[in-house]
Design a protein around this nucleic acid. Structure first.
Lengths: 138, 138
DNA sequence: TGTAAAATCTACTAATCCTATAGGATAATA
DNA sequence: TATTATCCTATAGGATTAGTAGATTTTACA
């Protein structure tokens, strides 16, 4: 299941990507437009800023803006920052690998093999999709 | 993330599928072989029995056994019983559909569109994979 | 008929995660 | 200096997850 955090994050990013001007947009504007709790969105945008996707400006006329072009931001990157591993099991994660404590030998685990397939497929989609691709023009 | 419940369930099912005889195997045998907490596995096998994958026999010499052949049990079915929806967002789920409360119009939601792709891909894998396919012979 | 083995059922608990909120600190602008 | 907006830390409530405990029922077998 996708967390609201990631969902809101993606929505906020595409909201910014849709705009013609890349000028700062305040949290309250984004929150209202996308029906997101403002305080919750605040912490999400902070994460995205720290991860290098967004820049921010304080004070009057301030807000958040994209630091890269929409076609340079992969869904995969955003997902990993907000949601964590793309893999469904830590033992098949490329970026967050962890051994399963119940599994003596991964090469003989049927779940392992299956989940590698799922990871590869999902990864392909998330890496080949950028913000630009998921913008839907009104 | 795949829950331990589903992971253990799949492991238990493949454990049973690997055996030549389809005679009852006690929970304790399965739990020990697969390094699973016995009491936890107990509740998982109960779900799988109620869902029609397993039969059970009480008393001495009792245990659980497969009710179908390994190539007749899709991973997708097991997943839906133990984990729930295959889709990452309720609004793109085929079997567990729910409207998002923050989304006035799904057709204009960029996350929605993206998650349909992921669902279709994962679904294809889970539907085309049966227990027989994920058995790894020792 | 008695006993052991095994599933069944109900209830509970501890820990973790998710979603969201509160409130003050900091910085920029006018 | 007042206002606006981000920044940051802390925390609360609820849901979910993973597991435990214990009593009950059913069956095989001696």
């Amino acid at each position: 299941m996708l967390s609201r955090k990631t969902k809101y994050g993606l929505k906020a990013l595409t909201f910014l990507a849709k705009r013609e001007e890349n000028e700062p947009v305040s949290i309250s504007i984004i929150a209202e437009s996308e029906n997101i709790s403002q305080k919750f969105l605040e912490s999400i945008l902070l994460s995205l800023r720290k991860a290098g996707f967004l820049g921010s400006k304080k004070g009057k006329g301030g807000g958040y803006y994209l630091l890269k072009r929409a076609n340079e931001i992969q869904v995969a990157e955003v997902y990993r920052i907000l949601e964590g591993p793309i893999a469904m099991v830590p033992c098949v994660s490329l970026n967050f690998y962890e051994k399963c404590d119940d599994c003596p030998d991964e090469s003989v685990c049927s779940v392992h093999k299956l989940m590698i397939q799922v990871r590869d497929n999902t990864l392909k989609i998330f890496e080949n999709t950028t913000l630009e691709d998921i913008i839907i023009k009104a």
